[in-house]
Write a protein that binds this DNA or RNA. Structure first.
Lengths: 159, 159
DNA sequence: GAAAATGTTCATTTTGTTTTGAATAATCAA
DNA sequence: TTGATTATTCAAAACAAAATGAACATTTTC
């Protein structure tokens, strides 16, 4: 019969798995998702060594993973008095997380996309015999427009 | 000085690149994105051989790529009288494309996600000393709820 | 049915990504 | 300053995904 504490470890493992598989579908490296998952369900801030030991991953993975997560703002460093190690906590607000992802990647991509569409129009020779090609560009542009409309929507939902 | 026809080839190349890089960010295999891009901007239906030659990819890639695209409904087979080869055309309606992707993948994932959250609650021992863990689950559940709300929104935008 | 054309499969190769851990650097306490 | 602790880097190893093409299967034509 499992003690409550053992049960809680089981729960934590399942949480970590959940984040790992979610991260998989979003294309994140496994170790990165797991680190985030671990911090997400940890009551207290954890050090890099804690992370390494709890997840049985290498120093390199832990260091790089934590850096990536810190860089995108999914994890915060926390300096604690009387503690030499740097501690880490998860940013749990989906809203802030997604907002940062959008700001750092997607917005840029959409801008580039707009430029790209313009460039594509410029490449089509004049004359009605190329109307077909212009029609293709129109479709592509419509895709781009719709994608752009999605961002504000996401923002609304996450509020 | 490039002839109009040469220019159009350039345009087509750029279109294919556009789809390839867009597909990259969505995590699709390069060859699959390229096949779709080629069909997207082709005036006429293309055969597997056309695809192989135009993209310089192997038989295997062409065959499998076309199959995958056909399976998810991004590409349609087209039987043409007096033509032995099977021809292919791109489905260009973003709405229909996305709808199919959602139906075939995301809906299922969301359902599983809901089950998973329920299971996670069940793993936490009773008692107020585990309220913290329950709070984590609440956060995760909130994520799930928000993700679920996104789907209908996407549908609206694409209309 | 035989030959030619078309299409699929899948073991192998190629390519790309993630993880590891030893070397190195930076930080800190005494 | 020194030794101990903590953190980063990066070349190499392990792993994963995609592309290839030869062998096989199917379809079509005569």
């Amino acid at each position: 019969m499992a003690t409550p504490t053992e049960k809680l470890v089981e729960w934590e493992n399942s949480m970590i798995e959940t984040f790992a598989s979610g991260g998989d579908t979003l294309g994140f490296p496994r170790s990165v998702s797991m680190i985030y998952g671990l911090l997400f369900c940890s009551r207290d801030p954890l050090s890099m060594e804690d992370v390494m030991q709890r997840l049985s991953i290498s120093k390199g993975s832990a260091s790089q993973g934590l850096r990536q997560l810190t860089t995108v703002g999914a994890v915060k460093k926390q300096i604690q008095l009387g503690e030499r190690k740097t501690l880490y906590v998860a940013e749990r607000s989906l809203r802030r997380l997604v907002q940062r992802l959008i700001d750092s990647n997607i917005s840029l991509r959409l801008e580039r996309g707009a430029d790209n569409v313009r460039a594509l129009y410029a490449m089509i020779p004049a004359g009605p015999e190329y109307d077909y090609a212009r029609g293709c560009n129109d479709s592509l542009e419509a895709w781009h427009t719709k994608a752009s409309k999605l961002l504000p929507m996401i923002n609304m939902i996450l509020k």
